[in-house]
Design a protein around this nucleic acid. Structure first.
Lengths: 155, 155
DNA sequence: GCCGGATTCATACCAAAGGATGAGGGCCGG
DNA sequence: CCGGCCCTCATCCTTTGGTATGAATCCGGC
């Protein structure tokens, strides 16, 4: 499940890659106008000024992506009340016991508390939760609860 | 720019003035390396590259100021909150920053991910979350999210 | 000016959570 | 009968979460 954590940050690297591409494009554009128009006559200050303005704008754009791209990712995924929760549970292969664990997780219980309430041992709870995380494709209990509510598995 | 995060609460004009100062400093620095190195046959690409990198960083910094300070604080306050959630937040003494951390917690983010998205360090996130747990009278993040939704603080 | 709250950061330590692996027993259908 | 699934438990290890303590800055109010 170690890879799940890496993939979660993929948005960041996507931004970085896009930034790199945009940078390459800008450099290409600069080279183009350099050889096309003001080959050697135009003043250096103007050229540097254009570069500064363009890259400042680019920086602002990147900063915007980095800042409001992440915290605003929740709204585009609000399909929680479609109703077919039972179908989703069966589809993901979530067992009855795992569902009990998931419900107690959502209530904020620790693994030990879940173990006490279900009369099972702590390793068993860990086993259930680990399988649950795989089936829900998450890496932490908080994410599992969040995703379960999105899928309508939990109220 | 190490203390940039501290200046986030500063006014708009403070940002503008600081931007001007930073710009002046950058120009000075550029002039310095211009007369110091570039004159001596340094390739123009290097000079332009330095300009691009510096102004990109400056743009990111400015974009962070403009986008994180202003629009992030205005929308969430006036239109959407009809319920008694705002009163509860004030009653519990939950600050704006703590609320941001709480929101990312509910999305299943780890402390490190919260730190990255808010551009603060991990100890700071821990500090906020600890204070949050005291104010919400809970002991774990899962409980905090659960209770916050009960109180109407979170959707 | 001084004080308190808010925010930031740092360090150290302990508890909890998660990952990996293995294993045993019960139940069911081929 | 035997393979497959579920539930159970165990051990070892790493990562994350949480607490405690201290300190720095900034800002608004007294």
């Amino acid at each position: 499940m170690a890879k799940a954590a890496d993939l979660r940050r993929s948005g960041f690297w996507t931004t970085v890659v896009l930034y790199g591409l945009a940078l390459a494009g800008l450099v290409f554009f600069l080279k183009y106008i350099e050889y096309r128009f003001w080959v050697r006559d135009l003043r250096m200050e103007v050229y540097v000024g254009v570069v500064a303005v363009l890259f400042t704008a680019l920086g602002i754009w990147v900063g915007k992506k980095l800042l409001e791209g992440r915290p605003a990712d929740a709204p585009p995924a609000p399909p929680p009340p479609p109703g077919p929760n039972q179908a989703v549970i069966a589809d993901l292969g979530i067992s009855a016991r795992e569902l009990e664990v998931l419900g107690l997780m959502a209530k904020g219980c620790s693994n030990q508390e879940i173990a006490d309430q279900l009369f099972i041992s702590l390793p068993t709870v860990k086993s259930h939760s680990s399988n649950l995380f795989v089936k829900l494709d998450v890496g932490r209990r908080t994410q599992a609860v969040h995703k379960a509510k999105e899928l309508g598995i939990l109220p």
